[in-house]
Amino acid sequence: MALFKRKRGTTETMEHGAKLITIAKPKGPIAEQFRTIRTNIDFMSVDNQVNKLAFTSANISEGKSTITANVAVTMAQAGKKVLLIDADLHRPTLHQTFEVSNKVGLTTILTSKANEIDMKDVVKTDEVNNLSVLPAGPIPPNPSELLGSRRMKDFLDKVVSHYDMVIVDMAPILEISDTQVLAGEMDGVVLVVRQNVTQKAAIQRSVEMLKLTKTNILGYVMNDVRTGADGYGYGYGYGYGQTDED
């Protein structure tokens, strides 16, 4: 698993996976911030149940996959049965993060002609109790068609009955059109914002695009906030266009 800090770069997470601080330093302040995010999401599920949760960002390299993976870990650590799906079919990362094969995955399910697929053949059970990982699988030439297909919707409806929480790592919404289509199938979506990187106009446009599909936007996670001894942190909030990024 990817447990240690690496230099920043637009391909670092793709090549080496996201940093799982919730496993590397489970008692540290950053892991506690991820548990706070988990708690906030749980509170928002009281009146409107959130079983299909997705994370996206405006653009690449804003920490989306890191936050998705760590939130999934904290939910599994809390005793929920979690399925983590890599639906970023352009820049998949979860197979690197959890060190599993990407030869089969979500695209295998969506392109299969079989009426039934044994989930044990494609879902990987991680060393984290209660956490299962579905990697993206081979990158297809038509990701938008696959993610917007009836088969994708049926797949999500089926797996949600077997897990307490299905968490989806989606592609950045301003760069990939299929994210907007998939977002509409989720019970809730969280937008990842990177401090001093994500522009306000990009946040506003992302929210506009999500609202077009009547997506339930739960809030945003502020990533890479420069605080504390570790040098950075995370925060959860509401109200778009009111953050401090440039």
Score class of each variant (00 low, 15 high):
residue 109 I to H: 01
residue 110 L to A: 03
residue 110 L to N: 06
residue 111 T to F: 02
residue 111 T to A: 04
residue 111 T to W: 02
residue 111 T to S: 10
residue 112 S to M: 03
residue 112 S to T: 07
residue 114 A to W: 00
residue 115 N to K: 00
residue 118 D to E: 14
residue 121 D to P: 01
residue 122 V to T: 01
residue 124 K to D: 08
residue 125 T to H: 12
residue 125 T to C: 12
residue 127 E to Y: 15
residue 127 E to R: 15
residue 128 V to W: 07
residue 128 V to S: 06
residue 130 N to I: 10
residue 131 L to H: 06
residue 132 S to F: 09
residue 132 S to G: 06
residue 134 L to T: 08
residue 134 L to E: 03
residue 134 L to I: 02
residue 137 G to N: 05
residue 139 I to F: 08
residue 139 I to M: 09
residue 140 P to C: 07
residue 143 P to D: 02
residue 144 S to C: 10
residue 145 E to Q: 05
residue 145 E to M: 07
residue 146 L to A: 00
residue 146 L to H: 13
residue 147 L to N: 04
residue 148 G to S: 09
residue 148 G to E: 05
residue 149 S to V: 05
residue 151 R to D: 04
residue 151 R to N: 06
residue 152 M to R: 02
residue 153 K to Y: 12
residue 153 K to H: 10
residue 154 D to W: 07
residue 154 D to T: 08
residue 156 L to A: 02
residue 156 L to D: 03
residue 157 D to P: 01
residue 157 D to H: 12
residue 161 S to Y: 13
residue 162 H to M: 14
residue 162 H to E: 15
residue 164 D to H: 13
residue 165 M to Q: 14
residue 166 V to E: 02
residue 168 V to H: 03
residue 170 M to Q: 01
residue 171 A to D: 04
residue 173 I to T: 07
residue 173 I to D: 10
residue 173 I to N: 04
residue 175 E to H: 10
residue 177 S to W: 03
residue 178 D to E: 13
residue 178 D to A: 14
residue 178 D to M: 04
residue 179 T to Y: 06
residue 179 T to G: 06
residue 180 Q to K: 10
residue 181 V to Q: 09
residue 181 V to D: 01
residue 182 L to N: 03
residue 182 L to H: 00
residue 182 L to W: 01
residue 186 M to K: 06
residue 187 D to V: 14
residue 188 G to H: 11
residue 188 G to Y: 06
residue 188 G to R: 01
residue 191 L to C: 11
residue 192 V to Y: 01
residue 193 V to I: 15
residue 196 N to R: 14
residue 198 T to C: 08
residue 199 Q to E: 14
residue 201 A to T: 07
residue 203 I to V: 15
residue 204 Q to A: 12
residue 204 Q to R: 13
residue 207 V to S: 08
residue 207 V to G: 00
residue 207 V to H: 04
residue 208 E to Y: 07
residue 208 E to V: 00
residue 209 M to N: 02
residue 211 K to P: 08
residue 212 L to D: 13
residue 212 L to K: 11
residue 213 T to I: 04
residue 215 T to H: 00
residue 216 N to G: 12
residue 216 N to A: 11
residue 217 I to M: 07
residue 218 L to I: 11
residue 218 L to M: 11
residue 218 L to F: 07
residue 220 Y to M: 05
residue 221 V to F: 11
residue 222 M to Q: 12
residue 227 T to S: 11
residue 227 T to F: 06
residue 227 T to E: 14
residue 228 G to H: 03
